[in-house]
Design a binder for these strands. Sequence first.
DNA 1: TATAAGAATGATACTCATTCTCAATATATT
DNA 2: AATATATTGAGAATGAGTATCATTCTTATA
Lengths: 136, 136
Amino acid sequence: MNIEKVFVEKGISLTSQRRLIAETLLNSSKHLGAEELFYLVHKKNPRIGLATVYRTLQIMRENGIIEKRDFGDGCSRYEDRKDMHHDHLICMKCGNVIEFDEPTIENLQMKVAEKKRFKVVTHRLELFGYCNKCSK
Amino acid sequence: MNIEKVFVEKGISLTSQRRLIAETLLNSSKHLGAEELFYLVHKKNPRIGLATVYRTLQIMRENGIIEKRDFGDGCSRYEDRKDMHHDHLICMKCGNVIEFDEPTIENLQMKVAEKKRFKVVTHRLELFGYCNKCSK
DNA sequence: TATAAGAATGATACTCATTCTCAATATATT
DNA sequence: AATATATTGAGAATGAGTATCATTCTTATA
């Protein structure tokens, strides 16, 4: 993802702080929380404050660049918004997160909602358990 | 649900405070948060403290009497644990929560997990949108 | 029954993620 | 350049939830 282009398209001014924060988040393979992200950013530029990290995350979220997740470990985690919706398998031991996508599940969800006359806007599905490594 | 019986079975001493807290929660049709529950309990007995509400909720949760839920509105909500697992439709306007149960979805989840060699312990599925009343 | 030991309670202090405030700095506009 | 507007960083404030601790029940035992 080209950060410069995305920010310009959305009309967000791209300061050096925001660039560093966005780059660090989007280049990470993990689902970072704000503190974690702050720690990484702080290593590269110790003058950036935690509030700016939070503010940048909020701006990016409001503009649909990233999504906020809650895996129940006490802090919100952020990941770039893929075009394809996906859900998560979360390892309760090592904390690793595996993404998956199962259209059949989504279809069934829509059917359930229809039965209840409910208009679904979004959903959240998380499977908690143990990954291959940790379940041995 | 007979509160007295359940508490005795689990070996939890049933004080007057706990009885009132448990009764208020279990007789509510809504998924109450701790503050809300405290407010209701406080109306009936103003001498009960917030800490006792939190403590009682924790004890009931540890003993499998209730379940903690997070609907992403900033506080945890509690509901009595039904034998049958179920998921939630959450109205983003009125906040009403509809429960549903779809074994086919659960089966598909297990298949997905298997493919990723992941051992599922529990899961969470929430559909956010608008209920029949609010979508008009 | 009296009493000592243990459990539960309520008030309040604390924690921790997140948000707010505000003065200082940077950027854009005239 | 001068002025208006945005952004930043430091730290204060918030709010849900937890820990502490002296006080108040219960319970067990002498």
